[in-house]
């Protein structure tokens, strides 16, 4: 019933509009305008000016009033530099944006058609053109040089003592791997991947025995973290909004991003006055149905807490003792010790 009423209403409105349109056309024909711009020219000119003023005021007001909402809290060292460059760019472009748009609308308003007036024949002026070629060039030189320096710093090779972790994206989640006590990652091979061995750990490599995974990504504050990023099915993108970190995860190729966290989770909770706050890892490259749900919590600890946390983690092999059968017989004893597998666990798995 409601549907029918709605449809009838819409038809009625459209009918009225068409009637008004016909009426307007007929009146127009009776008046028979001579093709000269009349009243509507003034209205359009005025609307441009009004639009410009209202628009600029609204934008300035919103940018000021809602700053805390759209300005994402920052928690990394290099992020301070990219944010600074962002705001420098905003300042330069903001001024140009307002001046050029307002001039555009003002000229439209000021130079609207006037009967008997003649436009100024002004085909070119080399000096003017030179000025507005050089001025943007200078502004751009500033932005480029600053940008290249910052980019160079961020993409520089990580220091040797950096904390290295590996993150892998797949449809539709992230997984993290730590090198364990020996500080080196075990080899992997995508052909070894199965339901439990998500990373495709190669158990013939000694380094893999103490590698561990975790439900949340923990990183230390104040120490460079190097993330080795990979994907095992389609493209994903490792995106940490609060740390200004983004790097694609590419199947068949490892990518890297190094950064240093400057605020622990606890500090950020205090700063935002939000005890529920968590840093989050998101996917920023379309990867399929669940693209919007690839969330993983990132926890930033003080360095000593981080070391403590690491010490508590159990090796992947310890949690999956079944896979001992894949370890070559000669290395099995060493693997059991390195992974910290207890007798009971061993017996349970057999």
């Amino acid at each position: 019933m409601f549907g029918i009423l709605l449809a009838a209403g819409i038809i009625l409105v459209i009918g009225i509009l068409i009637m008004m349109f016909r009426l307007e056309v007929l009146v127009d024909i009776v008046k028979r305008k001579s093709g000269k711009p009349g009243h509507s020219n003034k209205i359009n000119a005025f609307l441009f000016m009004a639009f410009g003023i209202v628009g600029v005021v609204w934008i300035l007001w919103y940018s000021w009033a809602e700053f805390d909402r759209y300005n994402l809290p920052l928690a990394s060292k290099h992020g301070a530099e990219t944010d600074e460059l962002f705001w420098i760019t905003t300042a330069i472009t903001g001024v140009v944006f307002i001046i050029t748009n307002i001039l555009l609308f003002y000229f439209s308003f000021k130079y609207q058609h006037q009967e008997g007036k003649r436009a100024k024949f002004y085909p070119h002026n080399n000096k003017l053109e030179l000025i507005w070629t050089v001025l943007p060039a200078i502004a751009l030189a500033v932005l480029i040089s600053k940008g290249l320096i910052v980019w160079g710093d961020i993409m520089e090779k990580a220091p040797d003592d950096a904390e290295v972790i590996e993150v892998m994206g797949y449809q539709f989640a992230w997984d993290v791997r730590y090198p364990g006590k020996d500080n080196s990652f075990g080899d992997y091979d995508f052909r070894l991947i199965d339901g439990s061995n998500l990373f495709g750990l190669d158990l013939e490599d000694d380094n893999s025995y103490d590698d561990f995974s975790a439900l949340e990504i923990h990183i230390p504050k104040g120490k460079t973290v190097l993330v080795n990023i990979r994907a095992r099915d389609v493209l994903h993108s490792f995106y940490l909004p609060h740390f200004r970190v983004k790097m694609d995860a590419v199947p068949g190729m490892q990518t890297h991003f190094k950064f240093e966290a400057t605020k622990t989770t606890a500090e950020m909770r205090a700063e935002l006055n939000d005890p529920e706050f968590n840093y989050e890892l998101a996917c920023a490259e379309i990867c399929g149905r669940g693209h919007f749900s690839m969330r993983k919590i990132v926890v930033v600890d003080e360095l000593e807490d981080y070391e403590k946390w690491k010490a508590q983690q159990k090796a992947w092999l310890k949690l999956n003792p079944d896979y001992l059968s894949k370890v070559p017989a000669a290395k099995r004893e060493a693997a059991i010790i390195k992974a910290g597998i207890t007798k009971e666990e061993l017996n349970a798995s057999l």
Binding site: Y111, H113, Q114, Y122, T133
Partner: peptide
């Protein structure tokens, strides 16, 4: 570097459009 350079010809075009409006006798 190359990307930001492309802003220069684009800026020239914008300024030229605006100067075309300047001093005109505009019919909307």
């Amino acid at each position: 570097l190359l990307t930001l350079v492309i802003a220069i010809p684009s800026a020239v075009k914008v300024f030229n459009y605006m100067t075309t409006l300047w001093g005109g006798n505009i019919k909307f």
